[in-house]
Amino acid sequence: MYTNLAIFYLFALAAVVGAAGVPMSKNIFWSAMGLLSALVGVGGLYVLLSADFLAVTQLLVYIGGVLVLIIFAVMLTSQIKEIEVSNQNVGLVSGAILFVLTGTLLSYVALWAPWKVVLRPESHETSAAIGNGLLGTWLLPFEVTSVVLLATLIGAIVVARKEIKDD
């Protein structure tokens, strides 16, 4: 039990420290590294919840895809070493209000939600259940999501394509 707890706190620490590092770091590449830490941490928490399929999808999509693309974009920016923070507006008052509001809401939810407690979740095959769910009960939301994704793909192609002039 204590081993599980220690691993949980390790992953939670990675997630929280990484997430804090994303906005706090001055260097945009270190922000990307913070994102990496946060994503790995959350993936590890999924494993502890016996959500193996979700954990691996997290790694594949967010680290193999999104994070690599973000770092790729960071490398294309000029002068990544001496980056100037262009937006100097900190917005103390509005930030503080937002912080208090969201903090209160999240603590309220965390403290008062009727959590389902499962002692020692056994690891079992989740991919089959997810597949059946997506193509059975939740078919309509699944299809709507795929249409939205298709629309974004087409939109990306339209934005990125070269204009060929007729003259």
Partner: peptide
């Protein structure tokens, strides 16, 4: 693992 192939493609992204 019952997500073996998937896991393999995901982790080699590191």
């Amino acid at each position: 693992l019952n997500v073996g192939v998937f896991y393999l493609t995901a982790t080699s992204a590191f």
